[in-house]
Design a protein around this nucleic acid. Structure first.
Lengths: 262, 262
DNA sequence: TAATCTAACAACGA
DNA sequence: CTCGTTGTTAGATT
């Protein structure tokens, strides 16, 4: 996206679902049109477009969706909830499988933003060292999985990635944080980065599309236990089970991932 | 207290438990000494002493305790965590059975105070009409009892009073708010005010002392079902049971107070 | 299947 | 007999 849309000037936007926005449609349109894109960045599951005049467009695809580029005169993607056109005729659409966020904020609003403002460090950033993770875990008492997918602790782990991160670290999702050994924290840290790096390397999940509509290649065969209910564990061949953990589900190997310590 | 301490000037304070305060002891002492008491008021379970220069002393006895007056030269109460002396030699002590708050704030701090600032209307105030209660209940879905004892909704109902309020209104503590009929809301409103008014009339609970050390007269024989486990219901003679409701206990008549609607 | 908010609820500690 | 904090859960959302 950086290559494709930076510097371009916004000519117009179409909002098909006003509830995606954090303000009335008119105000949104008035504020955004005429500004140029300064930079494109990401924090966890949020995409951040910096606009001229210290305005920021924050996008989160929620349960899933796509952001697709279109060239001047070329065919538009069929389905979308939001469309943005630049003054050269190119642009992009955003579609949500269910719901998502398209929020416009100034720099003050960015700091105070309920979700983006409270994000933890992204997993693959330099600063996300073992020491940093140790510091986050210190003094906590909840379940490991709830901790991992809470974006305020660290940004980037969703339910899909949590599956194999836990399996690789041999941790039960409901393992209590304050019972983790030093060795287990090391394994957890390594697993987190390995699983995410692998997905990035493969261009994301297979059901996700990139800016040009190309699907990722991180697919079912790359998962170790995630979504493999009834299949054998790749390590010990025990049958993989699906369990309820809080409001999400987790696929585990009941033998490799026990709740009790070590 | 209004009669006894208003206008007097604070000569000194002794803080025996610094955790009761919201600031370091020295700062507290320095701010408070030399000021006069302007007025004494109450909001729910909080006592509010207004001092000269827009300072406020907020006192909450927590699980219980007493505030006792002493005359110049007279014997002090034996046990206390806090003592305040006026320049005429009189004063008062505060004792907590377990834990309590003695917070000093300015008018800005009063508005922003975590507990006092968010208190709902006091039960016996003029404005606490049936319409007001109806408005508070509107759109809620939780249990009636949790609602009643949450001081942000209305100030003044503790676990003791909640017992008979619910019994008189024939409501089970876990009755869902959104299933209450108009009639039940009327009964609830009346019961709340009756139970509180009765206690005020009797000078408070029997295990509580007033400013002069005199105990209240609202005692066990005035309770209808509260703390009467195993005794017969005064209406239908069914045996009163003690049940767990959230983090508190409630004494109910299983026949008069059913969970289901009407 | 996926992500997040909110309200309600529970356990713990001061 | 009280309260804040933290964590957990169910329900809701487009």
């Amino acid at each position: 996206m950086n290559r494709e849309i930076v510097v371009k000037e916004i000519a117009g936007v179409d909002v098909l679902q006003h509830k995606n926005l954090n303000m009335p449609v008119e105000k949104f349109v008035k504020t955004i049109v005429g500004r140029r894109i300064i930079s494109v960045g990401a924090r966890g599951k949020w995409l951040i477009l910096e606009l001229q005049g210290m305005q920021f467009l924050l996008i989160n695809l929620g349960m899933g969706g796509d952001i697709l580029h279109f060239n001047p005169g070329a065919a538009m993607p069929e389905a979308y909830k939001f469309r943005l056109r630049f003054n050269d005729g190119s642009g992009f659409t955003i579609n949500f499988w269910w719901f998502g966020y398209i929020h416009l904020v100034d720099s003050e609003g960015l700091k105070k933003h309920k979700m983006v403002g409270e994000l933890g460090l992204s997993l693959l950033e330099e600063g996300f060292t073992l020491e940093h993770l140790r510091g986050l875990l210190k003094g906590r008492k909840g379940n490991v999985k709830a901790f991992l997918i809470d974006q305020r602790n660290m940004a980037g782990i969703g339910n899909v990635y949590a599956q194999d991160i836990l399996f690789k670290a041999k941790l039960h999702p409901n393992r209590k944080i304050n019972t983790l050994t030093e060795r287990e924290m090391q394994d957890l840290h390594a697993s987190m980065r390995e699983v995410l790096a692998k997905s990035v390397e493969k261009g994301g999940l297979a059901y996700e599309k990139d800016f040009y509509g190309k699907n990722g290649r991180f697919a079912g065969e790359d998962f170790l236990v995630g979504y493999k209910e009834g299949k054998p564990c790749p390590i010990c061949s025990t049958t993989i089970k699906k369990i309820k953990t809080g409001s999400t589900s987790t696929y585990i190997c009941p033998k490799c991932q026990k709740t009790s310590s070590t």
